[in-house]
Design a binder for these strands. Sequence first.
DNA 1: CCACTTGTCTACCATATGGTAGAGAGCGGG
DNA 2: CCCGCTCTCTACCATATGGTAGACAAGTGG
Lengths: 202, 202
Amino acid sequence: MTSKPPTRERILDAATDMFGVRGVDAVSLDMIAADVGVAKQTLLYWFPSKDDLVQAVLVEAASELTIATEAAIRATGDDPLDRIEAVVRAVFRPAVRRPALLGLIREVSRLSPAVGERFHAELRPLVDRAVGYLQKEMDRGRIRQADPRLIAALCYATVTGIATEPELLRSVGWQPTTADLRRLRSELLAFLRAALAPAPRR
Amino acid sequence: MTSKPPTRERILDAATDMFGVRGVDAVSLDMIAADVGVAKQTLLYWFPSKDDLVQAVLVEAASELTIATEAAIRATGDDPLDRIEAVVRAVFRPAVRRPALLGLIREVSRLSPAVGERFHAELRPLVDRAVGYLQKEMDRGRIRQADPRLIAALCYATVTGIATEPELLRSVGWQPTTADLRRLRSELLAFLRAALAPAPRR
DNA sequence: CCACTTGTCTACCATATGGTAGAGAGCGGG
DNA sequence: CCCGCTCTCTACCATATGGTAGACAAGTGG
């Protein structure tokens, strides 16, 4: 029954949302505790310090994205552009359900090096595989020739940027309605496809 | 005399850097004051509150980018892809000289609505012109057909994302050397060109 | 029934932060 | 010479924050 998720999980959930939306520094342990409906010391019981909590939140976010991504890859055919589209869709879904997820990842650069290091260790295998895959498909001529590492970073920057900058979208008159959301996703996918498609020989 | 820029400017400069790098919340007035070499109350003399300081910093950043952008546009020829490249280069230069600039803009979404509103008012004309321009060039068939508002947002997200995520680049093995920086810029430009070029008729 | 563990709480504390009050230095004009 | 203005400072303050100490209740095993 989901009527009573364990305290630790509820803390982790609330912290993920709040950190992602308002930033780690702007969210105090008291706020999280109030949101969960528990005393601050219960928080500190489960996570001995705020850093520990942040780290746990990041590790879980990374794992969530990794799982979604790998499932998407396994469920898709051979064409690299299709595969990339599947990954983007897979990342978009949790990001929409929980807008804080990607915003949270943007926080990493601000945190203590130790926390950042841990987070990277978590994501490293995923990144390496993605880069390797891009390289292979470039060699086969099914993706535009380029530096696969930077292509990976650029795709990530585009997706994360567009998904975590509500202000940006607002300033071009975008509204967070379902219809606009769908259009955004389809424009994003078209954008990436165009950016990645092999150069047409003229 | 230029040997000792006025206090107000020095405060603004230091605040821009520190806010951009570590985030508004993580930088205290004391830190900025110490960095400038002045008492905190001098800060509060020039900017009656932290919010005022943040706002001033944002307005100046927006103006700096606007000026660089408009100069780049005026100095470039007719082809839209060339023009977009010029703008990206123009934005990249201040962003590299002062890595905090773009990071700062990412902060807007976290601040009080009033501050964000003011910032948008500052940038609105620039955005509107960019969107209008994209629309026009799409009509003329010199840019891939798409929603010009979202294309503007996507380009912005890509550039900002890649320029403000040192962690992201680190995780794909990128180093902030001059050579790597040049390569990054050229890959970014190729990426955008591919994403924006009109669809090749097959 | 007792020792021990688990989980949550109340009561504090040291520190850092944004901000206030007001003094004093230098300076130009009357 | 003194008034008032600009600018910077020292001295505080109220609050919020991350974190510690330890009490208390509810199991759980022997």
